[in-house]
């Protein structure tokens, strides 16, 4: 007998492609946030598939903290060129120079929180009515309640207690003037799904996801990459370690993990046996138990 079963990856992909097409159909001027991290890469990859043989019908937007790993920027530019897509860069440095943001001070200074101002400015400048991103519900507990279509008021704020119910595969993108949406096509994916999909689809990713030797130092138990953007204390000497990154965010707050996983297959084995969540290496989430919820209410992705 013929069987009509999809694998979990096929079903997740079908769902994400449906959401991407729904965005193209329901919004006038959507954009896809693209950081060069694995999650935004697979969303962009599926955007290519969703509109093939046409081109991706919306620009990719990178909110650039200026504190990047160089490998990520190289990758970003190559990806955009190959996809024939349009890239728009929103600069946190520019927001600081214009006095809209204030740089944090001290040893743990990070520009991660400042991304919100630049993101909202970029949305306003280009009049985007929808910004898509690669956030997943399994990343963090406040995200577990996020909708696929997440409504934001004129200030870009999220109101977790007053979210629109989302039923079946019917997505309500109606809004008033000045309001916009955040849309998360891979809401239902886990870190493992993302890696399996990358392997299965043979998707290229930035090299820093794979194990490599790197100059690092240890801060509060987290392995941080030595960069010009972080001031090291005397008690934090630079050492060499074999590491890889599980997430790629701002270089000032993204920690590495010690790893020998230098291939996708080895990464999948490592993820399967991992005992901490991938955001466990993100110092921005450790500020308080509700750190993510507070940042999201203000308009963080």
């Amino acid at each position: 007998m013929q069987s009509y079963n999809l694998t979990h990856l096929e079903e997740l992909e079908a769902e994400a492609i449906f959401v991407l097409r729904e965005v193209a159909a329901q919004f006038e001027n959507p954009a896809l946030l693209f950081s060069g991290g694995k999650d935004s890469i697979i969303v962009a990859h599926m955007a290519k598939k969703a509109f093939w043989p046409g081109k991706i019908p919306f620009p990719l937007v990178h909110v650039d903290t200026g504190h990047n790993f160089p490998e990520t920027i190289e990758f970003r530019d190559r990806f955009v060129e190959q996809a024939g897509a349009t890239l728009i860069v929103g600069s946190v440095q520019q927001s600081i120079d214009e006095g809209k943001s204030t740089e944090e001070k001290g040893f743990n200074a990070s520009r991660n929180g400042l991304q919100t101002v630049t993101l909202l400015d970029t949305i306003e400048l280009h009049k985007f009515d929808c910004a898509m991103g690669g956030a997943r519900r399994d990343e963090e507990k406040a995200r577990a309640k996020e909708r696929f279509f997440s409504h934001r008021d004129d200030f870009g704020q999220w109101d977790p207690k007053n979210q629109r119910p989302e039923l079946w595969n019917i997505f309500n993108g109606r809004k008033s003037m000045g309001e916009h949406f955040r849309v998360f096509p891979i809401s239902n994916w886990t870190e493992m799904d993302v890696w399996q999909y990358i392997l299965h689809e043979k998707i290229e990713i930035p090299s820093i996801y794979l194990a490599h030797e790197r100059d690092v130092f240890i801060r509060d138990g987290v392995i941080m990459s030595t960069t010009d953007f972080i001031e090291q204390r005397e008690s934090e000497p630079t050492i060499k370690k074999q590491v890889r990154f599980r997430t790629i965010g701002d270089a000032t707050c993204t920690g590495a993990v010690e790893s020998d996983a230098d291939s996708l297959e080895k990464i999948i084995e490592e993820v399967a046996s991992a005992r901490t969540t991938e955001r466990g290496t993100r110092s921005d989430d450790k500020r308080s138990e509700a750190a993510m919820e507070d940042r999201k209410k203000q308009g963080y992705f």
């Binding site: 694998t7 990856l9 399996q196």
Partner: peptide, 12 residues
């Protein structure tokens, strides 16, 4: 987990 065992996993 076998690296390719995901190819016949279903979603519930």
């Amino acid at each position: 987990m076998e690296t390719n065992s995901y190819l016949d996993m279903e979603l519930l």
